[in-house]
Design a protein around this nucleic acid. Structure first.
Length: 512
RNA sequence: GCGGGCGUAGUUCAAUGGUAGAACCCCAGCCUUCCAAGCUGGUUACGACAGUUCGAAUCUGUUCGCCCGCUCCA
């Protein structure tokens, strides 16, 4: 597959997505909320197609993977075991002047022993020297008159006396705020007595927590995988780039359990496997990259992690992370829950905690990448000839050309597979035949019926929503031979085909 | 989260402290025998919430969102 030469800008793409019903801002009539998005009638079809292609490639086309669908709210101790609570509950504070951000529990304060109104000097953990210097320079005082206290012991109304670790002026520090990026809620209707619970920040833990049950019900032999698609929630500090970083998003995660020691080869296998999948749904090799994590970028328990990146118009960004996580997660859950999660290998008579390869993809990011890759504008010469790629940002086509917007989706991704068009709407037999064909094809695919306006306009409309085929019913269909024309979205060329052969022809191209 | 810029139909642009206009798009009708034709008619907007005012899209405040730069990114 070749790359699309046209590079869309995000505002143009967002505008098309709104105009045609792919993506809306959530609760737009109330002004929207940053980081939350709704999929419109076309967007939802497209997104379902992405998920269907993934699900089919994982659970249907191979016998070593099964699916699962776990709940969004899980036992709070799951997040203790996974490390999501421990690492991210610490309050942080910012310095308004230097823009620095500090963990509140790592900041200490030199406070005057007797004068409650005196300036107080903060410093970062084991480095009090700068603060001691400031006592001499700014407060003209003696270090011995000051005592060291944790920042968290300082009352909020005294914060205007605090001099930040990297400033010389008081009053620049914000109050500490919890930066737990998990959405918190409670179980049970009475808030005071409620148990705290969290919306899952990833779907993976549902798989690990049910590992034992899945093993004992489906008799899988290692290596085997468990796949899940579902919503996850992260209270991102700064959602940006349209839907790319959202607070509510959907993941497609596979945990592929393997024999310890086979990590490297399995990881390599899955990176290749996943890149092939992206190529198949319309993301060309030329725009895809691997970002191989090494050293500090690698989590301590991981032996390998490769991000699959796509060249978005706003930069090269991650679509999927493929991590070799060892047996970290199963170990954590086994220790935290006290329940054995070991696997018994009949062949070798060994019992062990399997290692895992985790390909974890963001559905919304894949959808956004597909939209970016699919969008193009063309200039079509009116008298025939070579179609040009339009100039980005050009308001109109040059003299003698007509502009066309196309979403060049892979057929398996396109929201509608076929548009059925009677050549004219005021000729009853044409309409009747078209309705009949629409009904027939709709049993198998999402189809579009349109009789409004000139035929050329209707073709362009379908181009703009990425429908791969337009089937037109004309007078030959009803008067001569029961054939129809099929117009190709990309080449705009037409062939004639008997209606009897239509379904097989389309199926061959649009089915994943 | 910080700093700067910006919010009028789907889009591109208007206008006045007192009835928000146009073009394209969209919808309907007529017409039309294959790539955005034509004619007629129509729907749709002042981001949200307050305040000032007889009256606010316009002035003020708050908030939400978008863009750019920083910051953050398990």
């Amino acid at each position: 597959m070749k790359t699309n030469d046209y590079r869309v800008t995000m505002d143009v793409l967002a505008s098309l997505c709104k105009r045609r019903g792919f993506i809306f801002q959530t609760s737009e009539i109330y002004g929207g909320i940053n980081g939350f998005w709704d999929y419109g009638p076309l967007g939802v079809e497209m997104k379902r197609n992405i998920k269907a292609c993934w699900w089919k490639s994982m659970t249907q086309l191979r016998e070593d993977i099964v699916g699962i669908d776990t709940s969004i709210i899980m036992h709070p101790r799951v997040w203790e075991a996974s490390g999501h609570i421990g690492n991210f509950k610490d309050p942080m504070l910012d310095c308004r002047e230097t823009k620095g951000r500090y963990r509140a529990d790592q900041i200490f304060v030199l406070k005057h022993k007797t004068d409650a109104d005196a300036l107080m000097f903060t410093f970062h953990e084991d480095a009090p020297a700068p603060a001691e210097k400031k006592i001499k320079k700014i407060a003209k005082g003696k270090v011995d008159d000051y005592e060291q206290v944790p920042l968290l012991d300082i009352p909020l109304d005294a914060y205007n006396q605090l001099v930040g670790p990297d400033t010389n002026e008081p009053g620049t520090l914000t109050e500490p705020r919890a930066f737990n990026l998990m959405f918190k809620t409670q179980i049970g209707p009475v808030e005071e007595n409620a148990d705290v619970a969290y919306l899952r920040p990833e779907t993976a833990q549902g798989i690990f927590a049910q590992f034992g049950n899945v093993c004992s019900t489906v008799r899988n032999k290692i290596p085997f995988g468990i796949a899940q698609i579902g919503k996850a929630f992260r209270n991102e500090i700064n959602p940006r780039n349209y839907t790319f970083r959202s607070r509510e998003f959907e993941q497609m995660e596979l945990e592929f359990f393997i024999k310890p020691g086979t990590d490297a080869e399995q990881h390599k296998y899955w990176v290749t496997e996943r890149l092939n999948w992206y190529e198949k749904i319309g993301l060309p090799e030329g725009r895809m990259h691997r970002d191989i994590h090494e050293g500090d970028a690698l989590a301590h328990y991981a032996s390998a992690c490769t991000d699959i990146m796509y060249d978005f118009p706003f930069g090269t960004q991650e679509l999927e992370g493929i991590a070799a996580r060892g047996n970290f997660d199963l170990t954590q859950h086994q220790e935290t829950s006290g329940k054995k999660l070991e696997y018994h290998d009949e062949e070798t008579k060994e019992t062990y905690l399997p290692h895992v390869i985790e390909p974890s993809a963001g559905v919304d990011r894949v959808a956004l990448a597909l939209l970016c890759e699919a969008y193009r504008e063309e200039w079509i010469p009116k008298g025939g000839g070579e179609v040009l790629t339009a100039e980005v940002g050009a308001k109109r086509a040059p003299e003698g050309y007509e502009a066309r917007i196309v979403l060049g989706f892979a057929p398996c991704i396109a929201p509608y597979k076929v548009a059925i068009l009677p050549l004219l709407k005021n000729k009853e037999p044409l309409v009747e035949k078209a309705r009949e064909l629409y009904k027939q094809l709709s049993k198998r695919w999402k189809c579009f019926y349109d009789q409004t306006g000139a035929i050329g306009r209707r073709y362009r409309r379908q181009d703009e929503i990425g429908t791969p085929f337009c089937v037109t019913i004309d007078f030959d269909t009803i008067e001569k031979d029961d054939t129809v024309t099929i117009r190709d979205r990309d080449t705009m060329e037409q062939i004639r085909l008997p209606i009897a052969e239509l379904e097989a022809y389309i199926a061959n191209i649009v089915d994943f």
